[in-house]
């Protein structure tokens, strides 16, 4: 064993964390090397001093100061919340006023014009009714009459047919005219 190897293992030797064979090898080296022997003794003294270092103690009012810090932290948090509310109170109240106003307008509009729902007729329903006029139900008839007056095509919710385009609309109008002529 050389001195460098001894140095790398010195802590393990002192902590007794090495194998028996390694320990014997190191002790053999210690017997031959006065430098390493001195180094080992020196290290023992240093470790002893480190373990015996006087321990500091916190000041007597440590806990009180800590509690003050905690209280300060809590009040700071409350202050931050208050500051937030103060800072954003104007925009928040404006936004709330706008939302209330919009709801109010919507409510008033609905109460003034209660019978203005969009008439939703599926294109498939119209097609069926046009092709079988004898089976026309009253609402469907009304729908056709309405269409004659003022064509209005609104895509129904359950309508799985493709979007109604202008050509389709013209076709329907022609078919409606033909049905009327047959009548």
């Amino acid at each position: 064993m050389n001195c460098y190897r001894f140095e790398t293992l010195i802590s393990d030797y002192l902590g007794n964390n090495i194998s028996h064979s390694m320990k014997s090898e190191m002790e053999k080296h210690l017997g031959e090397c006065p430098n390493c022997r001195a180094k080992l003794e020196d290290m023992k003294q240093i470790l002893h001093s480190l373990h015996k270092l006087p321990k500091l103690q916190t000041s007597a009012n440590f806990n009180e100061k800590l509690m003050e810090k905690i209280e300060h932290h809590k009040s700071k948090k409350k202050f931050i919340f208050k500051q937030f509310v103060y800072k954003y109170s104007q925009p928040l109240s404006t936004a709330a006023a706008v939302i209330i106003l919009l709801f109010g307008v919507y409510y008033i509009y609905n109460s003034i014009f209660p019978n203005m729902p969009n008439q939703k007729i599926s294109t498939s329903e119209i097609q069926n009714n046009i092709l079988n006029p004898t089976q026309l139900s009253q609402p469907a008839n009304n729908s056709i009459n309405n269409l004659q007056k003022k064509p209005q095509y609104v895509k129904a919710e359950n309508d799985d047919s493709s979007e109604t385009n202008i050509d389709q609309r013209n076709n329907f109008e022609n078919k409606i005219k033909m049905v009327n002529k047959e009548k």
Binding site: D42, I46, H48, S49, K52, L53, P54
Partner: peptide, 9 residues
Amino acid sequence: NSINSKYQM
């Protein structure tokens, strides 16, 4: 013993 140690604190 720590004061008298080779290495002062």
